[in-house]
Design a protein around this nucleic acid. Structure first.
Lengths: 153, 153
DNA sequence: GCTTCATGTAACTTTTGATATTACGAAACT
DNA sequence: AGTTTCGTAATATCAAAAGTTACATGAAGC
């Protein structure tokens, strides 16, 4: 089952953009995310509509953050991506005749509904600022390490 | 994102088998699940190894339940299917160099770990017997409805 | 013992959804 | 004007899952 990595990609892009003063082009973002500029534009389109980023054409154009990192949560970004399916597990048949299958679907639906609610709740507690802070911590630790062992990889 | 419906399919099959005295052939199961007998065998192979069902060759052969419906939970069945991925959302890059991506992955991993734990906990509380009971309830309700409106679809 | 029914499994094909690519238009800057 | 960059439609590529074919194995019935 191949997984949808748009959320992860977009977060990656947003944090890079947050650390940059100037706009970043789709091309640069694509290279740093290991994908294609058109894919970047397509993916970011949802975020632009949600007002999380803005894009500018022409020289010195590109993408930049248009929101408060403290205020925006993963929940918002997930929504901006169109609330893609969370689970890789589902039914074969959405509205079956068979009563056995109806019973199975009902039980699974209940469970997935509850679990998805928890996921979204967790998402809504994670802000971009928190991620940025965690990144800053990792960067400091990494630099410290480099200082101690300048030759190590 | 296409969803893996094996869990749902297998539950459907198990409940049908539980309601049948004689073994059911892969062919019959496949027809009732809208799939292919070879796929049924492939999918059920895991359950057989886990001792949840047994298969017999030749005349009057086929699949039958080999476990206590009260004792077996969805968790067991999920395990017997090889613990397939639960989430449709994941990372692009499992072990990135980029510290930004590491921070993003760490946050998402934490969240998904917690949410998956809840899902598995819920699965472990749902027994086959409970599903069978729910089916019986639906069947009774359906029969009642038929009795009241014998002409309706 | 021979035939039939059924599973077991490997190899192969088809399907499908996601991603990537190509192409070209529109806007903005120099 | 010419270059840069986004916007987007159309198309191609790819990979994973599902389906199919083919054949071997074993069990039951005659």
């Amino acid at each position: 089952m191949k997984r949808d990595s748009r959320l992860s990609s977009v977060l990656h892009a947003l944090l890079h953009m947050a650390a940059h003063d100037a706009p970043m082009t789709s091309d640069v973002l694509a290279r740093c995310m290991g994908t294609n500029p058109v894919v970047v534009r397509r993916t970011m389109a949802g975020l632009r509509e949600a007002g999380l980023v803005k894009s500018e054409k022409g020289h010195n154009g590109g993408w930049s953050i248009a929101c408060d990192l403290e205020a925006v949560t993963l929940r918002d970004i997930h929504a901006a991506l169109g609330e893609p399916a969370v689970f890789a597990i589902g039914h074969r048949n959405e509205a079956p005749e068979c009563l056995v299958e109806q019973a199975v679907n009902a039980a699974l639906d209940d469970t997935f509904r509850e679990v998805e609610a928890l996921l979204l709740e967790r998402f809504s507690r994670l802000t971009l600022a928190q991620l940025a802070e965690d990144f800053a911590r990792r960067l400091a630790a990494h630099r410290q390490q480099m200082r101690n062992k300048p030759d190590a990889v």
